[in-house]
């Protein structure tokens, strides 16, 4: 199972744990598995079927340009990061030139 690092402000969902395990071949599946284990957490990460604005996901130490579609392996480390506008790097995973919604 992948190691998921829970941001400080979401640890109320995981009983205070900073690090949990979850299954999934992609980040999207991983979030579904997290939701099954920690109900309510999905809604803090997703807005509809997209990652929330200003949240990006890093798999194995690198902020993913693919976001929810990123592949996750059983040995992966997954982080959800606050990607505050500005400064390029923290938001580098979420560039989609003319993204809806």
């Amino acid at each position: 199972m992948a190691r998921v690092f829970i941001p400080s402000l979401l640890r109320s969902f995981t009983g205070g744990s900073a690090e949990v395990e979850a299954n999934g071949a992609t980040v999207r599946e991983l979030i579904e598995d997290l939701e099954a284990r920690y109900p309510g957490i999905r809604q803090r990460l997703l807005e509809g079927s997209h990652l929330r604005p200003n949240i990006s996901v890093a798999v194995d130490g690198e902020v993913s340009p693919l976001g929810l579609l990123e592949t996750v392996s059983p040995t992966s480390e997954v982080h959800f990061l606050a990607a505050i506008k500005g400064g390029m790097a923290p938001s580098m995973g979420s560039l989609s030139p003319s993204s809806a919604p």
């Binding site: 400064g87 390029m88 938001s91 979420s94 560039l95 030139p97 993204s99 809806a100 919604p101």
Partner: peptide, 11 residues
Amino acid sequence: DRIVDLGEGET
């Protein structure tokens, strides 16, 4: 209004 990503994060 809507959320857009125009190069420096979503706004």
